[in-house]
Computed example of a mutant assay.
Amino acid sequence: MENLEPLEIVNGQITGLVKGLIALIPNLIAAVILLILTALVAWGISALVTRILRKSNARPSLRDAVGKLVKIVVWALGLLVAATILFPNLTPTKMIAGLGIGSIAIGLAFKDIFENFLAGFLILLRKPMRIGDDIECESVSGRVEHISIRDTFIRKRSGELVLLPNSYLFKNPVKVLTDEPLRRIEITVGVAYDEDVDQARDVITKAMEGIPSDKSDKPVQVFAKEFNSSSIDFMVRWWTESAPIDEHKSRDKAIASIKRALDDAGIEIPFPYRTLTFKEPLPLSGSSSAQDA
């Protein structure tokens, strides 16, 4: 009989476990039904919110982000209620207390993820940066292709795709090059000191005729800027389309036109001059042989 006691204990435990599982079947069915309802509610509310945002002309990326956030909130509430149904002893107070303790560890472990998540929403709420804009942020520049909750996809002008964490874009200054249809370009042109400043200004101004964009009603500006080491520098400014390729094309036309006009007018564009001084006179090569002769 003593040998049968362990078997009876195991048998009793298994029997109690089976009875407990059978007793949980109604709760399990209720929890599953609740999860199905949660899925339907999450889908319905997300679709409704997305439809409302679409009517308000919100960005597609923002609509997707808000829809995902709504689903996460609904699912979190549904799982919380399902857990209390499945395990009656697990009250909401105990779960919230457990989440409060665990949230510290979760927050430390997923700090970067949460930071990028919040930064992603703030970026999507910003009006200046849109899909298709050309931007510059620190050493990264290119066209914005997609903005997700965690990353922003930047297509560099050389073709590579860069995934920037949203927190990086949120913390650092971002220059949106295509925020306006037109952007001002500036170059520096130097002429020799022997040249007439007024004549050089007139030649440069005439050379820039037709270079600015047809959409711009702002005149070309040419100013004498500074006395440089080898030249008098002029600052030349004009407006053209804001896309980088339009900037390159306009800059190319301007430089070629100014160079051609200055050459035709006989105005020198000087090379850098260097004047070297020595503490003591330098002997000239061959001077001793010349004196001997």
Rank of each mutant, 00 (worst) to 15 (best):
A105M: 09
I258Q: 11
I29S: 13
D179V: 03
S287Q: 09
S230K: 03
G120P: 04
S257T: 01
N11W: 03
I185T: 02
R251D: 03
N116W: 04
D246I: 00
K127D: 12
N89A: 05
H146P: 00
M208N: 07
T277G: 04
R155A: 09
F227I: 06
D202S: 05
I204N: 11
A192K: 10
L7D: 09
L69G: 12
D134N: 09
R183F: 07
G44Q: 10
F278H: 10
A30E: 10
I185F: 03
I106C: 10
P283M: 05
G159P: 02
L40T: 05
L77E: 14
A256L: 13
K218Y: 06
L21S: 15
K253I: 02
K55M: 15
L37S: 02
S250G: 01
P60S: 05
A192S: 15
L37Q: 12
E186F: 06
T15N: 14
P26Y: 08
A290E: 13
S103G: 02
T15Y: 01
T15A: 08
P26R: 11
I187F: 09
N3F: 02
E115W: 14
L37K: 00
I85G: 08
L124R: 07
K68M: 12
A261F: 05
E145I: 03
I232T: 13
I52M: 09
Q291H: 08
L77R: 01
D214N: 07
D179P: 01
I131T: 04
A97V: 10
I154R: 14
L177K: 13
G98I: 00
D133N: 07
A200M: 01
R251W: 04
D179C: 01
S61C: 08
P88N: 09
S103W: 02
A224R: 11
L124G: 02
A42W: 12
P92V: 12
G107K: 01
A47W: 14
V220T: 05
A42G: 07
D198Q: 09
V162R: 15
I135Q: 11
K215M: 02
N116V: 05
I258L: 11
A83F: 04
I147W: 03
L163R: 14
K71A: 14
F234N: 06
G190C: 05
P281G: 04
L35D: 13
D202I: 02
A265E: 13
I113M: 15
R130V: 04
L161F: 10
L35S: 13
N172D: 12
S46P: 03
A30L: 13
R184D: 03
T15P: 00
S148N: 09
R143Q: 10
L122D: 15
S250M: 04
S56I: 03
W75T: 01
E136Y: 11
V176F: 11
E8K: 03
A97E: 15
Q291E: 14
P281T: 06
C137G: 07
V162G: 07
K127T: 07
K279Y: 06
L282R: 08
F271I: 04
R237Y: 01
L86Y: 05
G142E: 09
I96D: 05
A31F: 11
S216I: 04
K127P: 01
R201H: 06
I72N: 14
K68S: 13
I52A: 07
F170T: 05
